[in-house]
């Protein structure tokens, strides 16, 4: 499992475009808010709390093609699956690496962005906690959607249609500062479902 995590992280370090890809996407969506809605500070504050979730959802959706597809196409997935009988290890290591590569940079850049939008420290911390919990849940969902749609080529529209309904509860509870316990519950539920379904999908395609 540690080997798998190390391998995935090294692969993404070698092509460092991966990091900048989602971070720039996330930042650019948020930067566009003032251009669309004006620069009133109250309004910007309110909009930031909501749009940050839309930006997170979209930047996870655009990475869904990059989780299992490369391994599936060059045959690495088969080799890993033949070596380890319990495929759940692979799934958990993919969760960790996917979160590290695509979500951690967003959380790091979040405080800087929130000061650009006139948020105070307390609100920043609240948004940070919510995004931290919610991003895990979204990563679990993105993983199983990626595993299920391995055989469907070039269908980012279909993947979006599948993922949007699953992201709706996260966006609703995430944009409310006080409801982080429910968000935690949703993330745990999605973990339980996702680890089972991802392993199921990978076994189907690996056979």
């Amino acid at each position: 499992m540690l080997n798998l995590i190390k391998r995935d992280l090294l692969l993404s370090f070698y092509s460092s475009a991966n990091f900048f890809f989602t971070v720039s996407f996330f930042v650019l969506i948020l930067i566009l808010i003032p251009f669309a809605f004006g620069t009133q500070s109250d309004q910007l504050k309110l909009l930031f709390k909501g749009v940050v979730w839309i930006a997170l959802a979209l930047s996870i959706i655009i990475t869904v093609d990059r989780i299992y597809n490369a391994d599936y196409e060059d045959g690495n997935l088969d080799i890993i699956m033949q070596k380890n009988k319990t495929i759940e290890y692979l799934v958990i290591s993919k969760y960790i690496t996917h979160w590290f590569i695509y979500c951690l940079p967003l959380l790091v850049i979040l405080p800087i962005l929130s000061f650009l939008f006139y948020l105070d420290y307390l609100e920043t911390i609240q948004i940070f906690i919510n995004l931290f919990i919610g991003s895990f849940g979204m990563v679990f969902i993105a993983n199983f959607v990626s595993a299920l749609t391995l055989g469907a080529k070039r269908t980012i529209f279909l993947k979006t249609i599948i993922m949007i309904p699953l992201f709706v509860p996260f966006i609703i509870f995430g944009s409310d500062a006080g409801s982080w316990p429910i968000l935690l519950g949703l993330s745990m539920l999605s973990f339980v479902i996702s680890i089972y379904v991802t392993a199921y999908g990978l076994r189907l395609y690996g056979e």
């Binding site: 055989g151 469907a152 249609i161 949007i164 199921y200 189907l204």
Partner: peptide, 30 residues
């Protein structure tokens, strides 16, 4: 959206036995 996902996922996967299993799993998650 769930109906669309079920129907079009089945059409998008070329291996039809696999497509049935995958879209059935998606229907249950929905």
């Amino acid at each position: 959206f769930l109906y669309i996902a079920y129907i079009f996922l089945w059409q998008a996967i070329s291996n039809k036995e696999l497509a049935s299993k995958i879209s059935a799993a998606l229907a249950i998650i929905g």
